[in-house]
């Protein structure tokens, strides 16, 4: 089908229609920017675009598609901040690539796997983000394992709900 992504892997691979592939990441970025108006903690603990990147990358099971999704979502997210473009871009590129690579080897349909994978990739994302921000942008950020693990758990739990919703829009390739 034109405008959709497919994988050449022999395992169960999913694709998404072009409108879904564009609208869902944009909706996630929109909610990430809009919800803190009512829920100030949202920007502190939740990264909805990251959940979408992980889901799309794992479902497509294509490293190139995962990488591309990560680059695009990350750069748009960067564009909404005052920081240079590329901070979120680099972090989400790595996560998108990693999630799709892992999706090839794991059964990513089970809740337990999704919990673990989301927690792990959230921490990876934050480590890369902090490294880039401190080393390249020069901002002084304080790393707190306690807070990052708490946020990782919160994102993993929200991820279960988000992934269940997004399961409805994926199509078997």
């Amino acid at each position: 089908m034109a405008g959709s992504y497919t994988s050449r892997e022999q395992i169960e691979v999913y694709r998404f229609s072009a409108p879904v592939a564009i609208a869902v990441p944009l909706l996630a970025i929109f909610l990430q920017a809009f919800l803190p108006r009512w829920l100030p903690f949202f920007a502190t603990y939740i990264d909805l675009p990251l959940l979408v990147v992980i889901f799309f990358a794992m479902a497509r099971r294509s490293q190139m598609a995962g990488l591309l999704t990560g680059v695009c979502v990350g750069l748009v997210q960067d564009a909404l901040t005052q920081h240079p473009l590329g901070v979120y871009g680099i972090s989400k590129t790595v996560v998108g690539y990693g999630a799709s690579s892992l999706g090839v080897k794991l059964d990513v349909e089970s809740v337990a796997t999704r919990l673990l994978v989301t927690t792990g990739f959230y921490v990876v994302h934050q480590v890369i983000y902090f490294t880039v921000v401190r080393a390249l942008v020069g901002l002084n950020l304080a790393w707190s394992w306690q807070r990052e693990l708490g946020s990782a758990a919160a994102n993993a739990i929200l991820g279960i709900v988000v992934f269940a919703l997004l399961d409805r829009v994926k199509q078997r390739a």
Partner: peptide
């Protein structure tokens, strides 16, 4: 091939980032 593309994507973004930081 895929790893090379990943490295290239990260490298390009780092260079872009450095340019933006150097000459905002």
């Amino acid at each position: 091939r895929n790893v090379s593309i990943l490295a290239a994507a990260i490298f390009i973004q780092i260079v872009g980032l450095a340019i933006q930081v150097k000459r905002p």
